[in-house]
Amino acid sequence: MSQIKPAMGHPAGGRNDARNPLIARDRDWHPAPLAPGYKTSVTRAPQRPLVAMPTTLSEQTGPAFGHGLIGELDNNLILNFTGQPAIGERIIVHGRVTDENGRGVSGTLVEAWQANAGGRYRHKKDGYLAPLDPNFGGCGRTITAEDGSYEFLTIRPGAYPWPNRVNDWRPMHIHLSLFGSGFGQRLITQLYFEGDPLIARCPIVHTIGQDKAIQSLIAPLDMNRAIPMDCLAYRFDVVLRGRRQTVFENRMEGM
């Protein structure tokens, strides 16, 4: 049976101490749930206000995944489907996962998925005319190192058209899913590539209101990590919700 190992992961007393509340989300920084330019969001956004309150143990604890979960090629999307190389521009995508206190988030699961070099997903609902690549599955995963760093080897995904307005195209992007040490830190986002002219035209990108927030999703070219005669590199750092660093507040007398 598929089973994550319980009771491993984040020791009490450390910086991931589950007794510490998570810092409240800045909902003005995140995308608006209802963004008319992204038509599907119009019927999928709650109308009632969210019920807001400080986090509890239910958000401050979360599942942990061991390094043992990860297979040797899991973070190599070029080879992990058939063992034969996928077609496309070879790139390293790497960065550091930190929290809002600037500390590295170690040992956390990062999952990625993307279209192939032609902009086609391996999915029965994707009927785009660009062909499937027989050697590209489209997903990968890794666990962050002690300092929060991670890396993937993949091909640069293609842009693709999608049904929204008549001629909407998604910029090249990689979807990323991250955990942290508390369920309330759970995050899915998308990585875009420096210089892509479609970013400015994308209604999904522009569900985010603040330009600085959008800029934080654009990975710059990183020639320091590019490997000569092999692959280019892009750097993408991710910030997860942090914890308020005190155990003294909101505690009943005597607890």
Binding site: D26, E111, W113, H175, L187, I188, K212, L217, V239
Partner: peptide, 20 residues
């Protein structure tokens, strides 16, 4: 302090990444 990375929709192909 750094800001939390903004969320983006999981999109229609989320299963490729999370339940391939």
């Amino acid at each position: 302090y750094p800001k939390e990375t903004p969320s983006q929709t999981a999109g229609p192909y989320v299963h490729i990444g999370l339940t391939p």
